[in-house]
Structure formats: C-alpha cells, structure tokens
C-alpha cells in the first residue's frame, strides 16, 4: 500500500546538508484495471531529486506449458542481477508510433515524376504543329490529311508570325527539308543542337549557366520569368530538397544559344532577387570536378 512520504521543505534539506536518503519507492497495484504503478525517486545528472512514475499494464496470457515454464527461468549471465520485468537499461519501448509505409505502384509514381519536366516543356509550346497548332510534330498530326488543303494557308500565317515576333516564337518544329518553307536561323543546319527527341539525353552544355544564392522560396516558374527575356530556355533545373521540396539555393539554366546565356550572365549577375544578390556564372560541364 502506498506509504505516505513525509513532507520535507527543500530549505530543511539544504540545511541538513542533503544527507537525507531519498524517499522510499512505492508500488501500487490497481486490481480493477490491472495497472501497476511504481513511483521511484532518484537524483538526476544535476544532482536534483526526480520522481519517476512507471505505469505498467499487467496482462495475463495463456501460454503453452513449455513457454510458461521458460517464463519462470532464472536470469543468468549479464542479466543475473536484473529485477523481474524488463530492465529499462537494455529494453526500451519506443514512444513514438512507427507505421509501415505502404507503397502502391511505386514505379508508376516515379515515372510520373521523371516525366514532369518534359510536360512542362510541352506547355511552353516547344513543339507546335503547323497544321493544328497542337503539341506535337507536324508529321504526327492526326488532322494531317483532313487539314491538308489548309496547310498552305497556315504555313503563310506561320511565316508572318515568325517574322514579326522573334525570340521564343521561333521555336517551331524541325522543318522538313523541302523548298519554300521558312527555316528559322536557330534551326538551320549546324545550329539545331539539343533539339528534338535527343534533347534530354544529349544536352548542349555550352549554353548552361549556374545561378547561386537563390532564396529558399524560389520556384522554377520564378526562374523562368527571370530568364525568359534573355532568350529561349531549353531547360531549368532547380535543386530542391528531396523531402521538403524547398530550393537548395542554386539552379542551372540551359539556354538554346550561348549568346543568350552570356547576356543572362551579364544581366542578372549581382541582381537583387528576393532579399539576396544572385550570382550567375557559366556552369562547369558535368562530369568534371
């Protein structure tokens, strides 16, 4: 039964030189709920008295005879002096709950994530059909045959548009090598590196710049906005923390043309963005340290 701990004032204790032994530990068993409470007093690392209350739920389980017999075995070896019940020094029940993370169609999800940058590029109309203005190559247009008579007309429109609006507008599908069709300079022979289907694998690294000292809140769209005026952007890579999704403070911008990249460096380096001053320089080719 619980023993009454005789009250002592701390002042008294200090006067006595603290040679009082600790209050005795007590054990209480609530039979109704089968809950055992052990109260102990001990000194902590700072030399202060700490009250430790341990609450156990006592369970009765039916077990096979052999198991029950083993339950009564005496402890031996390193556990020889351990009191009955788990020794808190080497048996720790983890307080926080750990759940099994259920994974469903993991591969599918990963693929989606990988394809994300491509989708973004599509939205930028990197590829637009000359027949229907859809997001596909002209040769793959589903309306190729039905809209064929209109093709001539559309081509002319296209030409006008290309002439009047330079810059991002020039990003049209790779032209077929037939006479009479307009070929933008950026797409002519020798200048069309890093376009088309090989874009992702064989990136031209010469027009890549590295932006550092970005703020944590920076998004890819912010960078796009910032660098768009300098010329067509092939790809933006913003380094993000895997878990939090926050920016790690640097990004790579691939331009189509090296001149654009050079202008971007000249224009944005030292530019104050958010509360930080951006640092822009040529990216070192990957693979070199």
């Amino acid at each position: 039964m619980p023993t009454m701990v005789e009250p002592i004032s701390w002042a008294e204790q200090v006067e006595k030189g603290d040679d009082r032994s600790l209050p005795p530990s007590s054990e209480d068993f609530d039979e109704e709920n089968a809950i055992k409470t052990i109260t102990e007093y001990k000194y902590n690392d700072d030399g202060k008295v700490v009250k430790v209350v341990k609450i156990y739920k006592v369970e009765k389980r039916k077990a096979a005879k052999s198991i029950a017999r083993r339950k009564n075995w005496r402890k031996f070896g390193a556990a020889e002096r351990d009191p009955p019940g788990p020794n808190p020094a080497n048996t720790i029940v983890q307080v926080e709950e750990i759940n099994m993370q259920i994974i469903l169609n993991k591969e599918q999800k990963q693929q989606e994530q990988e394809e994300d940058p491509l989708l973004k590029l599509k939205n930028q109309k990197m590829v637009s059909c000359r027949i229907c203005k859809g997001d596909h190559w002209t040769t793959k247009c589903p309306y190729k045959d039905t809209l064929a008579p209109l093709q001539e007309q559309l081509q002319q429109d296209e030409k006008k548009a290309a002439e009047t609006a330079p810059g991002p507008q020039q990003q049209q599908p790779a032209p077929q090598k037939s006479a009479g069709k307009y070929v933008p300079p950026s797409l002519r022979e020798g200048a069309n590196k890093g376009r088309g289907e090989v874009m992702q694998s064989k990136r031209d690294e010469s027009a890549t710049i590295r932006v550092t000292n970005l703020s944590e809140d920076t998004r890819e769209s912010d960078l796009q906005e910032l660098f768009r005026p300098f010329g067509p952007i092939q790809r933006i890579y913003l380094a993000k923390d895997k878990n939090t999704g926050q920016s790690k403070g640097f990004a790579f911008i691939n331009f189509h043309r090296r001149e654009d990249a050079a202008r971007a460096i000249a224009g944005v380096s030292g530019f104050g963005y958010d509360h930080l001053i951006l640092n822009v320089e040529w990216a070192k080719p990957s693979g070199t340290s």
Partner: peptide
C-alpha cells in the same frame, strides 16, 4: 562476445552466454 536471449513478448533479457 556475449550472445543474449530475450523474452519476445516484452523484451526482457533472460540472460547472456559468457
């Protein structure tokens, strides 16, 4: 150098083999 044996139900250490 000391293998241990434990009760699986509550993690209580039964002993060690020295």
């Amino acid at each position: 150098s000391q293998p241990n044996v434990w009760y699986s139900i509550n993690g209580e250490r039964l002993g060690s083999y020295r």
